[in-house]
C-alpha cells in the first residue's frame, strides 16, 4: 500500500494536466487534422457548414451526457445505464414547471437543475450505495432496474404521448454567408460551454472539487486524509444528474417535442462519445460527443445509404471500431494491472 501512495501525487497532477488539454500527443494530430478538414469543408460548401453547425449542437448534447457518464464512471467505476432516463425525468419536471405551473423558462431551468442535483444524490444514496461494493453486475442491474422504474413512473404520471414545451431561444434562424444557423443551436452550444465551464471551475479551483477528485482517484487514501468519500460520491452523482438535466433540456429544445423514450438514442450516442474519448477522460467525453455529432450529420448528408434508421447502428459501429483499435479511447490512459 505504501508503494502505491508515493505514486498518488503524480496521478492527481497528470489528471489535472489531462483536464487542461493533452500536449504533444498523437491525439493532437488527429484533432488538428479533423479541425482542418472541417474548416476546409465549411469554407468550400454551405451545406457542409450547415451540417457541421447542426452536428456541433447535437454533439454538445451528446458530450454533456457523456460527461455525466464519465463523472460517475471515474468516481465509482460504474456505467450508469439509467443516466439518459434520469435526464428524461428531469426534463419532464421542467415541462411540469413551465406548462402546468407557468414558471418562466429560465427560472424553471434553474429549478430543474436544483431538483436534478437532489435527485441524483438521492439515487446514489438509496439505490447505488447498498450494492456499490458487491459486484459490477449487481450495480449494472440496479441501474437497469432504475431505467425501467423511471420509464414507468414518467409514463404513469405524464403519459406516453408527445408533449410540447416553450422554446428557450425562440425559432429565429440567422443567415451567415448563406448558411442558416438556428438560434437554438447556438444556445445549446453556449449553455453546454457554460455548464461545463462552471463544472471545471468547481473541480479544479475549489477545495470541494479537489476532495471529489481525490475520492474518485484514490478512495482509501482520500479517506485517510479526511475526505468524506461517501459524501463526495453522492455529490458526484448529483452533479452528473445536473449535467444530464442540461443535456435533456437542450435535446428537448432542439427536437421541439418530449416523450419518454427521447433520451434513449442520445444515451447510446453518449456511450459512443464517452468510449471514443476514453471512459475516464472528461475532456475526451466532450470532444467525443462533438466528433460523433458532426460525423453522423455529415455521414447522413453525403452517404445516401446512411438514412435516419441506420444512424444508431453507425454509432454502434463507431463504438466497436474504437474499442477494437484503441480501447482506451483518444484521451484515455492505459491501465497497468498487476496480476
Amino acid at each position: 500500500m505504501s508503494a502505491v501512495q508515493t505514486r498518488e501525487h503524480p496521478a492527481l497532477r497528470r489528471d489535472r494536466l489531462a483536464a487542461l488539454g493533452p500536449l504533444g500527443k498523437p491525439v493532437n494530430l488527429i484533432l488538428v487534422g479533423a479541425a482542418v478538414f472541417l474548416l476546409i469543408g465549411c469554407l468550400s460548401s454551405q451545406i457542409f457548414a450547415q451540417q457541421t453547425v447542426v452536428g456541433l449542437a447535437q454533439g454538445a448534447v451528446y458530450g454533456s451526457l457523456a460527461l455525466a457518464l464519465v463523472l460517475i464512471y471515474r468516481a465509482t467505476e460504474v456505467v450508469n445505464f439509467a443516466q439518459g432516463e434520469m435526464a428524461m425525468f428531469t426534463t419532464y419536471v421542467a415541462y411540469q414547471l413551465t406548462t402546468s405551473w407557468h414558471v418562466t423558462y429560465w427560472l424553471a431551468f434553474a429549478l430543474t437543475l436544483l431538483i436534478a442535483f437532489v435527485f441524483g444524490m438521492g439515487v446514489q444514496l438509496v439505490f447505488i450505495r447498498p450494492v456499490q461494493h458487491t459486484s459490477v453486475i449487481a450495480v449494472v442491474i440496479v441501474t437497469v432496474g432504475l431505467f425501467i422504474l423511471i420509464d414507468g413512473v414518467v409514463g404513469w404520471v405524464w403519459g406516453a404521448d408527445i408533449k410540447f414545451m416553450p422554446a428557450p431561444f425562440g425559432n429565429t434562424v440567422y443567415h451567415v454567408g448563406g448558411v442558416a444557423i438556428a438560434r437554438q443551436d447556438i444556445g445549446t452550444i453556449l449553455v453546454t460551454i457554460a455548464s461545463v465551464g462552471l463544472l471545471w471551475l468547481l473541480f479544479q479551483r475549489t477545495k470541494l472539487g479537489l476532495g471529489m477528485r481525490a475520492a474518485a482517484l484514490r478512495p482509501a487514501s482520500a479517506r485517510l486524509v479526511g475526505v468524506r468519500v461517501d459524501r463526495m460520491l453522492a455529490l458526484g452523482w448529483g452533479l452528473a444528474a445536473v449535467l444530464g438535466a442540461v443535456a435533456g433540456l437542450m435535446a428537448e429544445a432542439s427536437e421541439y417535442s418530449l416523450q419518454p423514450s427521447f433520451m434513449q438514442p442520445i444515451l447510446l450516442y453518449a456511450f459512443a462519445a464517452a468510449v471514443l474519448g476514453g471512459l475516464e477522460s472528461p475532456v475526451g467525453a466532450l470532444v467525443g460527443g462533438v466528433m460523433i455529432g458532426i460525423f453522423l450529420n455529415l455521414l447522413g448528408q453525403y452517404v445516401s445509404f446512411v438514412t435516419s434508421e441506420i444512424r444508431l447502428p453507425f454509432a454502434f459501429l463507431v463504438l466497436i471500431v474504437v474499442l477494437l483499435i484503441k480501447p482506451t479511447g483518444l484521451f484515455g490512459k492505459k491501465k497497468v494491472r498487476k496480476v
Partner: peptide, 15 residues
C-alpha cells in the same frame, strides 16, 4: 406504466 414501476422496483429490491 404501473407494470414498469412494479417491475423496476422489484428488480432493485431483489438485487
Amino acid at each position: 406504466h404501473g407494470q414498469d414501476v412494479v417491475f423496476g422496483l422489484f428488480v432493485i429490491v431483489v438485487i
